[in-house]
Computed example of a mutant assay.
Amino acid sequence: MVAAMNVSSAHATRPYALLSIAAAVGTIAIKFGAYVLTGSVGLLSDAAESGINLVTALVTFWALTVAARAPDQTHPFGHSKAEYFSSGLEGALILLAAVGIAVTAVGRLFDPQPLEQLGLGMVLSLVATALNGGVAAVLTAAGKRLRSLALQADAQHLLTDVWTSAGVVVGLVLVQLTGWLILDPLIALAVAVNIVWAALRLLRESADGLMDSALSDEDTRSIERILAGYAEGGLQFHALRTRQAASRRFISLHVLVPGAWTVQRGHDLCEEIERAVEAALPQSYVTTHLEPLEDPLSWADAELDRTPRSGDSPKEKRR
């Protein structure tokens, strides 16, 4: 059931990736047209970033298509980590775009060029900015609802593009008011720095995901609240470990019950706990390990707890 739910959720993300592709194509056409009309290197840098948006939107669609595949024999835990490759590649491509923008801007610093039809160019840039802003809002909401890192990364990139476009327009207004042509390449260099910052953030998030980072503090507290309700009955829990793979959560813990319990009773309790955690945190895969309270070996791995208990045995558990 969990696998089916995860696959269904992954399928639901792909229409948003298609929306991002359509928006990228539209903004490239608009921004490049603005550059052709004005000759502004700032607008050229803005159009170049939209070109990167198109590439990353295509990669995002590919990653979400792979992530939507059901678990199989070679990937029993699913394919959701494909989303991290999407955001990582996006970060790398953004860095390349920043280098290209910087090289073009430096050339214009030493050889400023007159700008033409600034009014129409700025109007076109603002239209493209509004388009990106609307799509970014849609992708942000969908990414949070569907827990899709790829969609959230794409939305963050589009928001970066929005601020980039706003900065370019401000620069062009200043050029028009002051006549200082050097402001155009300076704004382009500022755009490049902003793009580098966004790229480094995406690369860091991708690396964290590929290294199996733990769930957020909020998610962990939700698990602990559920376990606290069962602990009131004299049960114990430890060795809570979590990791996330894009939209999927993986949770494991040890459940300690009286040794006199039957296997059936312990099994039923573990099933109940797993269902409670999965209900609180959708798209979770929960694994429990049953142990007897009275056995000292049951406490030998208590140091794996998120918050170790005082008096727990420091020895490693050996089985």
Rank of each mutant, 00 (worst) to 15 (best):
A3L: 00
A3F: 10
L18M: 15
S20T: 05
I21G: 00
V25D: 13
V25T: 14
A29C: 07
A29Q: 04
I30S: 01
A34L: 01
D46L: 09
L58N: 02
V59G: 01
R69L: 13
P71M: 11
S80N: 13
E90V: 08
A92D: 02
P112V: 01
S125Y: 10
L126Y: 14
V138L: 14
L139D: 01
G143N: 01
A150H: 06
L158M: 10
D161H: 03
T164W: 12
G167I: 07
V168L: 02
V169F: 10
V170F: 05
V175D: 05
V175Y: 03
I195L: 03
L200Q: 11
L202K: 02
E205Y: 01
D212G: 10
D217M: 13
E218V: 12
E224W: 12
I226T: 08
A231F: 00
E232P: 10
F237R: 02
A246V: 05
F250C: 09
S252E: 14
T262N: 00
V263D: 03
G266L: 03
D268I: 11
E271S: 12
E274F: 05
A279R: 14
P282D: 08
D295Q: 15
S298C: 07
S298V: 06
R309T: 04
R309W: 00
G311L: 05
R318Q: 10
